[in-house]
Nucleic acid binder design. Sequence first.
DNA 1: ATTTATATGTAGTGATCGCTACATAAGTAG
DNA 2: CTACTTATGTAGCGATCACTACATATAAAT
Lengths: 195, 195
Amino acid sequence: MAAGRPRTFCKNEALDRALQVFWRKGFEGASICDLTEAMGISPPSLYAAFGNKEQLFRQALDRYAGVHSERRKEALSAPTAREAVAAILHAAARNLTDTASPAGCLYVQGIAGAGEHASCVRDMLNAKRADSEREICERLKRARAEGDLPEDAEPAALARYVATLTQGMSVQAAGGASREDLERVADLAMRIWPS
Amino acid sequence: MAAGRPRTFCKNEALDRALQVFWRKGFEGASICDLTEAMGISPPSLYAAFGNKEQLFRQALDRYAGVHSERRKEALSAPTAREAVAAILHAAARNLTDTASPAGCLYVQGIAGAGEHASCVRDMLNAKRADSEREICERLKRARAEGDLPEDAEPAALARYVATLTQGMSVQAAGGASREDLERVADLAMRIWPS
DNA sequence: ATTTATATGTAGTGATCGCTACATAAGTAG
DNA sequence: CTACTTATGTAGCGATCACTACATATAAAT
């Protein structure tokens, strides 16, 4: 059939730029004007390609989630639970203070000034954080089954401890904490390990 | 001199109601309309009594900070550093999930959808979180001086660990974590203690 | 009673929000 | 070429934002 005028920008590239804006300013803090400027396109192009602001956020969030899901899997593939959790925490310290990206984690900073009507954004971010915690929990369950963790260890509680730390590290990073500060937090946090 | 028409509302009571709104929605997420409705006053009364939205937030934040500073001091007055930190973490688990208030901590949730022009709000909240961390650090320094902590303990790093946990717990609470969940995190967190 | 000072209620300011109508440009299909 | 489809650029929509002008109300001071 007829194919119409081709779009003049790369969708994924534009999405990456939108992600940067959402990451730095949060969902509500990022205006369409901020986004179109960063993406190098006009509002009608944005709406034609991505739907609306909420759908754009969802797509940017999925892209972000893809990257971080891979990093998480890599960290969790360490041979022991102890090494896996240490890898998660130290990767967090590193990534959350990466100067090439906004400080902190989109899962935390994205909440922004969400009024009531942005509850779906809150739900999206809650779900992503829960996904992350669940993957850690699964790894710990496996470790317990393999005898890598004692029988009385509680994977769910441990996973929540790790998730709480990474989320707190995001707040710390957004507040100006240095990479070294967060590395030290990660080191301290690992002292709970029975080994 | 002449005293003029007296105001028809209690300033502190109105401030408390504004605090609830900021707490639940964040600085940017709370509209003047939300605030005036909750405070039971009209916009001109709000501006006459509190200046503007930013100054209102600052006053609400100070009020919140007063309450939490007292609670913190009480927790830190425990005889040993270990008990003091445990008290901080368990108080966080309790307070952050208090059903009478919005979930989470204003110091974290207040960041809301802060656009660039709300950087002063970000600074205010960063400063309050830093205050909290510093008080914990002071307590730990005292403990080390008293021999309650080993010579090689690092009060600053420990204080940052505790602050990171409480901030992460705020994110967890805002995401729906239960009091029991957070209590278990606090228990796990205390396992790093050398004792 | 008059003056002075502060608070209130109504109503609306300009600016910005997310979003879109509309005409035009740029491609394919026949 | 004409017909059709899709993207772009301009320009602006109604709604909401933080905030305020203005007239009026209510107190104390003289």
